[in-house]
């Protein structure tokens, strides 16, 4: 049974259900908190650390996507420090793979690119890691481009939780972590993939895309997402 909780976000009094997360309450109230690994309807994993917020009286930052509301919380979602950290998070996402927006299929419809813009990120200060990673175009309809993957795990979760196929997982660890289908076998040879395309729909960047799309041709797809995942969870 959920009960009503009242809390303060960025100086505003807001009411919430006790089973809500800080992120959902903030968004309901028009307070924007950037996210990348979160997708309404999928289990939250708190991995991208973009939604970190400050809680008054606590030194620790909290990931808004997995923090349950509590009575009387006083939360700050966009201090100078948080903005600086978020810029750094976005910067590191860009630097860990080879993101070249100009020649990316997701140019103009990429959540990483928009997050950079929203945070006024104009340049990078850390070293690009430039990993030598592959493009897998063996599937008849879709492509996986590791150069653009941010390891948010949305595809892994949508395939497991919604489609029930668990084609995707992460292999290796740390900087060597990579998205893989089956036993690291080419996607086109996967024995578990149903070709449903949900992973492509939920990919925030140009890592998973449909063949035949070219640069700067938006991956017109976001509208489907709520139907794919949202209703399933609420049902």
């Amino acid at each position: 049974m959920s009960e009503v909780r009242t809390l303060v976000i960025d100086g505003r009094d807001v009411a919430a259900n006790s089973d809500q997360t800080l992120l959902s309450v903030a968004r309901e109230n028009g307070i924007a908190i950037p996210t990348l690994c979160h997708l309404e309807g999928l289990t939250d994993i708190g991995a991208c650390r973009l939604c970190m917020v400050e809680l008054e009286g606590s030194k620790k930052l909290l990931p808004a996507c997995v923090t349950q509301v509590q009575e009387g919380m006083r939360v700050v979602t966009s201090s100078e420090r948080l903005l600086e950290y978020r810029r750094r998070v976005i910067e590191m996402f860009f630097l860990e793979r080879n993101h070249v927006c100009a020649v990316c299929v997701a140019n103009n419809s990429c959540e990483l690119q928009s997050a950079a813009r929203a945070l006024s990120l104009t340049h990078f200060e850390l070293a690009p890691l430039h990993p030598d990673v592959a493009v897998d175009a063996t599937h008849e309809r879709f492509v996986l481009d590791q150069n653009r993957c941010i390891l948010c795990g949305r595809c892994v979760r949508v395939c497991d939780e919604i489609e029930g196929a668990h084609v995707w997982d992460i292999r290796g660890r740390g900087a060597n972590a990579r998205l893989v289908s089956d036993m690291g076998t080419p996607w086109g040879e996967s024995t578990t993939c149903t070709s449903c395309g949900k992973c492509v729909q939920v990919c925030p960047t140009g890592a998973l895309f449909e063949k035949g799309r070219s640069v700067a041709e938006p991956k017109a797809r976001r509208p489907y997402v709520p139907y794919l995942v949202g209703h399933h969870r609420r049902a």
Binding site: R49, M92, F93, L95, E96, L129, R173, G174, A175, A177
Partner: peptide
Amino acid sequence: CREESCGKCLPCRVGTQEMYL
């Protein structure tokens, strides 16, 4: 740390790498 990072969260996965460099 960079070799033992599990790779789940971005700050540890990339941050340890960048600090190492």
